[in-house]
Amino acid sequence: ENVVSAPMPGKVLRVLVRVGDRVRVGQGLLVLEAMKMENEIPSPRDGVVKRILVKEGEIDDTGQPLIELG
Rank of each mutant, 00 (worst) to 15 (best):
E1M: 13
E1V: 14
N2P: 07
N2H: 14
N2C: 15
V3H: 09
V3N: 06
V4K: 03
S5C: 15
S5Y: 15
S5L: 15
A6M: 09
A6C: 11
A6D: 02
P7V: 07
P7Y: 06
M8H: 13
M8W: 15
P9E: 06
P9L: 08
P9K: 12
P9F: 08
P9V: 07
G10K: 02
G10Y: 03
K11E: 04
K11R: 12
K11C: 09
V12R: 00
V12P: 00
L13Y: 00
L13N: 06
L13Q: 04
L13A: 05
R14I: 09
R14P: 06
V15Y: 05
V15D: 06
L16E: 03
L16S: 03
L16K: 05
V17R: 00
V17I: 07
V17Y: 00
R18V: 11
V19A: 07
V19W: 03
G20D: 05
D21R: 00
D21K: 02
D21G: 04
R22W: 14
R22F: 14
R22P: 10
V23C: 06
V23G: 02
R24F: 12
R24K: 13
V25A: 14
G26R: 03
G26N: 06
G26P: 00
Q27P: 00
G28V: 15
G28T: 15
G28A: 14
G28F: 08
L30P: 01
L30W: 00
V31W: 04
L32T: 04
L32K: 01
L32Q: 04
L32G: 00
L32P: 00
E33P: 00
E33A: 07
E33R: 04
M35P: 04
M35I: 07
K36W: 12
K36E: 15
K36V: 06
M37A: 11
M37R: 12
E38Q: 11
E38V: 10
E38P: 09
E38C: 11
E38M: 10
N39K: 13
N39C: 15
N39G: 06
N39A: 12
N39W: 15
I41S: 02
P42T: 14
S43V: 02
S43Y: 03
P44K: 05
P44W: 05
P44G: 04
R45C: 13
R45G: 05
R45H: 10
R45P: 02
R45L: 12
R45D: 04
D46G: 08
D46R: 06
D46C: 10
G47I: 03
V48L: 08
V48Q: 07
V48W: 14
V48T: 10
V48K: 05
V48C: 12
V49P: 03
V49K: 01
K50I: 14
K50E: 09
K50D: 05
R51E: 08
R51A: 12
R51P: 02
R51N: 09
R51M: 06
R51S: 09
I52H: 01
I52E: 01
I52A: 02
L53F: 15
L53A: 04
L53T: 03
V54G: 03
V54T: 10
V54A: 10
V54N: 02
V54L: 06
V54D: 01
V54F: 07
K55H: 12
E56Y: 09
G57H: 05
E58Q: 12
E58K: 09
E58P: 11
I59N: 09
I59G: 05
I59S: 09
I59E: 11
I59Q: 10
I59P: 06
I59F: 14
D60N: 15
D60A: 15
D60H: 15
D60F: 15
D60W: 15
D61F: 15
D61W: 14
D61C: 13
D61A: 13
D61Q: 14
D61H: 15
T62W: 11
T62K: 13
T62S: 11
G63Y: 07
G63Q: 08
Q64H: 13
Q64I: 11
Q64G: 10
P65N: 06
P65M: 08
P65W: 09
L66F: 05
L66I: 07
L66P: 02
I67A: 03
I67S: 02
I67P: 02
I67V: 10
E68Q: 08
L69D: 00
L69M: 07
G70P: 02
G70C: 15
